[in-house]
């Protein structure tokens, strides 16, 4: 699972009002290079919840992203490269996603988060 996916997932346990962002518990992560597209990054930037991305990247040991970002930074190649790396090249392989409200742990195995709810959580 990459951090763009993380930026979309929300905990949906019955009664939970604030299930985003899920906290990362990292046992193993990998980095895989993908082609760089400045246009894609510029388009997706306004849709990204920045703080969630920064915190998730930091939990995988990548601390290069600034705490805050605005669209003027999209002119900087240096910024775009860091954004690209955090969003698309870091993969959580083993670990878990933790609901910020209930602490419920959604395990991640072989890169696949298990977001299935138990019967009493639906």
């Amino acid at each position: 699972m990459r951090l763009l996916t993380h930026n979309m997932l929300s905990c949906n346990i019955k009664g939970v009002t604030n299930g985003f962002p899920l906290r990362l518990e990292v046992e193993k992560f990998v980095e895989k290079e993908v082609d760089f597209s400045a246009e894609f990054l510029r388009n997706i930037f306004p849709k990204i919840e920045w703080k969630a991305l920064v915190d998730a990247a930091r939990s995988m040991g990548y601390a290069e992203l600034p705490d805050e970002a605005d669209s003027s930074m999209l002119d900087s190649d240096d910024f775009l490269k860091k954004f690209h790396h955090a969003l698309l090249e870091l993969h959580l392989e083993e670990g878990a996603l933790i609901c910020p409200e209930t602490g419920r742990r959604f395990p991640v195995n072989k890169g696949i988060p298990n977001m299935l709810l138990h019967e009493d959580e639906v």
């Binding site: 699972m1 996916t5 930026n7 979309m8 997932l9 929300s10 905990c11 949906n12 299930g19 985003f20 919840e49 696949i112 988060p113 298990n114 977001m115 299935l116 709810l117 639906v122």
Partner: peptide, 11 residues
């Protein structure tokens, strides 16, 4: 993602 589309929640 292992998820039930019918009760998935996307931000």
């Amino acid at each position: 993602v292992l998820w039930d589309i019918r009760n998935s929640k996307w931000r």
